[in-house]
Design a protein around this nucleic acid. Structure first.
Ligand SMILES: Nc1ncnc2c1ncn2[C@H]1C[C@H](O)[C@@H](COP(=O)(O)OP(=O)(O)OP(=O)(O)O)O1
Ligand SMILES: [Mg+2]
Length: 429
DNA sequence: GTCGCTCCAGT
RNA sequence: UGAACUGGAGCGAC
């Protein structure tokens, strides 16, 4: 029997319990066996004994994944592979065991799908390199990344670290579980399912090879999933790096570049994670701002027949959430403009025609826009946008400072805003 | 401090 | 009804 501590750790009751908790919390759809999150506990009681034994003896056969196609931004379609609830739990349990083992070996420049790391850190790293004089970007995105992961390459890498043959074999079976298209099941010899809890970790383990190769060559870069930017000093160097990396990816990892999303250009002409770097400052991409405006138009449009409260609620949570991500933009010029734009939009659509109470409009404006931008840009909530944004100023920007300026405290402002953004129970339409 | 839910963003 | 990972904001319960 090949069962070692690895599989035992996967099957430990604590680990399985938290894995199930996570799968349940995601409230995902059923797999090909039709077992939903709700009837999983009963299903588990009936079959766990058998399945556990199969897992321990290395005989367990995962079910195929269910194929669902969803549209992508660029017009193409994304092929999801939805494992059964049982397989999602098992994969999650494996991921929880493997993450603490593999994650420490990952590159400091890898930011996607990793605990404690996010897109902001990735774009800030790019910014630092640009400021250090590496302004030319080799922007690479892989074609159909998850769908083209090579099993042999990945299994070899896994085998270097995972000593447990049963676990290794189980991961191999998950990779080759097949997909159900319509009525029949089709085998697959390539790819890891977009929808498998283990897939993001496997993706990082595979591209960890690339990260270390980049480090070995002394490159400055940031990677987020299959999206990466290598920063160099000249276009010549960029072209050379692009060529050699393309060769490395295709030769060693059997992965292809997405030519449409890959290029060598000044970082100010590249997009990464929704941002770009203009004159050393982080700024959101124009198309992201356009998407934001479009969404606000929808939310404030007259063709949406819902109650006032509901509309305010939805608008507030969208604006606040959006600024939570894009609010790290340091390019402050567009922000007052954006603030003004939202104000105009709200007044135009609703103040006159719909006779919104003035107080409600003011509270909405205070809610996600003025306040948040004011805090983040070191100015008062009265739109003193031209005030210097020195580090000392940032430091001084605390509650005391607000009060000293004769402004309401941050807490007061937030309480006002919260009263209109998230009532104890969600407002009705 | 530990869980539960609603959102937002990136991939 | 479209899975997953990660980060964030908020609310709620012990
Ligand atoms: N909802 C999702 N959106 C984007 N990426 C996802 C999602 N779920 C899983 N992923 C993973 C799988 C993708 O292979 C990987 C990279 O995303 P992305 O580059 O947008 O698509 P892709 O690499 O599959 O196709 P493309 O050829 O268009 O680049 O991130
Ligand atoms: Mg891609």
């Amino acid at each position: 029997m090949e069962t070692t501590e690895w599989m035992t750790a996967v099957l430990a009751s604590d680990n399985l319990r938290s894995a199930w908790k996570r799968v349940k919390a995601n409230k995902g759809a059923q797999g090909i066996d039709g077992v939903t999150i709700e009837d999983f506990p009963a299903h588990l009681r009936a079959h766990w004994g058998d399945i556990r034994r199969q897992l321990e003896t290395g005989r367990y056969r995962p079910s195929a994944v269910r194929r669902v196609e969803i549209p992508k931004d660029d017009g193409g379609k994304r092929l999801l592979g939805i494992p059964t609830v049982m397989d999602r739990v098992i994969q999650q349990a494996i991921a929880q065991v493997l993450t603490p083992i593999f994650d420490p070996s990952f590159s400091a420049s890898s930011f996607g799908f990793r605990p404690g790391r996010n897109a902001h850190q990735a774009i800030r790293q790019v910014q630092r390199h640009v400021k250090d004089g590496y302004a030319m970007a080799v922007d690479i995105d892989l074609a159909k990344f998850f769908d083209t992961v090579n099993h042999d390459v990945l299994m070899k890498i896994l085998g270097r670290t995972i000593r447990d043959k049963a676990l290794l074999a189980l991961i191999g079976r998950y990779l080759r579980a097949g997909v159900q298209v319509g009525e029949h099941i089709e085998p697959n010899d390539i790819g890891t399912p977009q929808g498998g809890p283990l897939s993001p970790l496997l993706a990082n383990i595979l591209l960890n090879e690339l990260d270390h190769e980049l480090e070995r060559r002394g490159h400055r870069f940031a990677r987020y999933a299959d999206d990466m930017v290598v920063l160099v000093k000249s276009r010549r160097a960029g072209e050379r790096v692009m060529q050699s990396l393309t060769r490395y990816l295709e030769g060693r990892l059997k992965l292809k570049r997405n030519p449409a999303k890959s290029k060598v250009a000044k970082m100010s002409e590249c997009g990464f994670l929704g941002f770009t770097i203009i004159r050393g400052k982080i700024r959101w991409l124009e198309k992201k701002l356009e998407a934001f405006k479009h969404r606000v138009r929808e939310l404030t449009g007259r063709s949406w027949g819902v109650s006032m409260e509901y509309r305010l609620h939805k608008l507030g949570q969208y604006v606040r959430g959006w600024l939570g991500y894009f609010g790290i933009s340091e390019y402050y010029r567009p922000i007052p403009e954006l603030d003004e734009w939202i104000r105009r939009r709200i007044r135009m659509c609703h103040w006159k025609q719909w006779r919104w109470p003035r107080t409600k409009i003011n509270r909405l404006l205070a809610l996600g826009v003025s306040l948040k931008t004011a805090i983040q840009h070191g100015t008062s909530s009265k739109s003193c946008w031209h005030m210097a944004r020195t580090p000392a100023m940032q430091q001084a920007l605390n509650n005391d400072w607000f009060l000293a300026q004769g402004l309401p405290s941050i807490k007061t402002l937030w309480c006002q805003a919260q009263g209109y953004s998230s009532s104890p129970s969600e407002p009705t339409r």
